[in-house]
């Protein structure tokens, strides 16, 4: 496979995952704004911080206003991580790697782009927001579905998966990075409604409320939430899950290429050093320090993959 193709696949799937995660963050923000249980401005600020789009927003706007934030995150062409730019970039990459995709995947991606362009042609009315976000996620799910159902399990698939899970791990880690303080034992004022909302927000932003209830019942405990989002092996957005998938796919590539490259060792080390302990060890290390460390390791891993598989020169 061409290095360029590996690069295109990686970014195509990263961008799709990012678009989907951003719709989820917007949904969460909107929900909090409606329930008025927390200071909405602070929430929008931390949501944009999570998505890594706050500084851009602040440079372009004077204050935090719900409509503007939503528009910035959903449609803005100046925001390189808005849903629309992410979808457009996914499709651009798909065009570049068209020969590596099945017709089904290409058409699903192309139709996702066309649908988004339609849905996001104008500012989205608050009334239409839930439906619009739902429709976008339904489209990205279709790409994922066709990917699962029609693509060969080969190096093409590996790079698609690695892109997906790196972005997802990064997203989960960022949510924790921004919200870690509400999960610390020291500030835990048991069961106040504010806390409950915050905890629920975190789960909501990774579509994990249902999953969490199945695993832990319906009382929220911050320690369980941390455990669930970092170490749980069943939860498809937990750090342990994502990193273990990346290890698997890098492992298949290692088998294919017949040579063990540094990126595989890096991923394996993240798994063994940071995701094989229990939750006590993480709190002992310091939750914030731990998350910061993981974020920087994920970034390093992404650059190493670029080098190992000759994405550029």
């Amino acid at each position: 496979m061409l290095g360029k193709t590996a690069n295109g696949l990686f970014w195509m799937y990263r961008s799709l995952e990012r678009a989907e995660n951003t719709t989820r963050l917007i949904e969460t923000g909107q929900r909090i704004a409606l329930t008025r249980l927390a200071a909405a401005d602070d929430e929008w600020r931390s949501i944009m911080l999570t998505a890594g789009v706050l500084s851009g927003y602040e440079a372009a706007n004077d204050d935090i206003a719900k409509d503007q934030v939503i528009d910035w995150m959903l449609r803005s062409k100046d925001n390189h991580s808005s849903v629309m730019t992410s979808i457009a970039s996914a499709r651009q990459n798909a065009r570049m790697v068209r020969t590596a995709l099945t017709t089904e995947v290409w058409e699903a991606t192309n139709s996702t782009y066309m649908t988004c362009k339609d849905l996001l042609a104008r500012k989205v009315n608050e009334r239409d927001l839930p439906q619009t976000l739902g429709a976008i996620r339904q489209r990205t799910s279709l790409v994922r579905g066709t990917t699962h159902g029609t693509m060969l399990r080969n190096d093409i698939y590996d790079f698609a998966r690695i892109g997906t899970f790196l972005e997802r791990a990064d997203n989960t880690a960022r949510i924790l990075d921004v919200k870690y303080y509400v999960l610390l034992p020291s500030v835990m004022s048991v069961g106040s409604s504010i806390d409950n909302v915050q905890w629920e927000t975190i789960l909501r932003s990774v579509s994990a409320r249902g999953g969490f209830r199945m695993a832990y019942g319906n009382s929220y405990d911050p320690r369980d939430i941390v455990q669930f989002l970092i170490l749980d092996r069943r939860m498809p957005r937990s750090l342990a899950f994502c990193i273990s998938k990346i290890c698997d796919n890098l492992g298949y590539l290692t088998d294919d290429h017949g040579i063990r490259l540094p990126s595989f060792q890096m991923a394996d080390q993240i798994r063994r050093q940071f995701l094989s302990h229990d939750i006590e060890a993480i709190f002992e290390y310091g939750l914030h320090e731990y998350i910061q460390k993981i974020l920087s390791l994920i970034a390093d891993l992404a650059s190493q993959i670029e080098i190992d598989y000759r994405f550029y020169e």
Binding site: M1, L2, G3, K4, T5, A6, R98, T99, D155, L253, H257, I259, Y309, R310, E313
Partner: peptide, 27 residues
């Protein structure tokens, strides 16, 4: 390229290596 089952390359994927034109693959 897709229908023929061959690679679609751009100039920056290619260079001359040992007297042949070669494409940069992941390996």
């Amino acid at each position: 390229a897709d229908q023929m089952g061959v690679e679609l390359v751009e100039g920056h994927d290619l260079r001359v290596v040992d007297g042949r034109v070669a494409m940069r693959t992941t390996s």
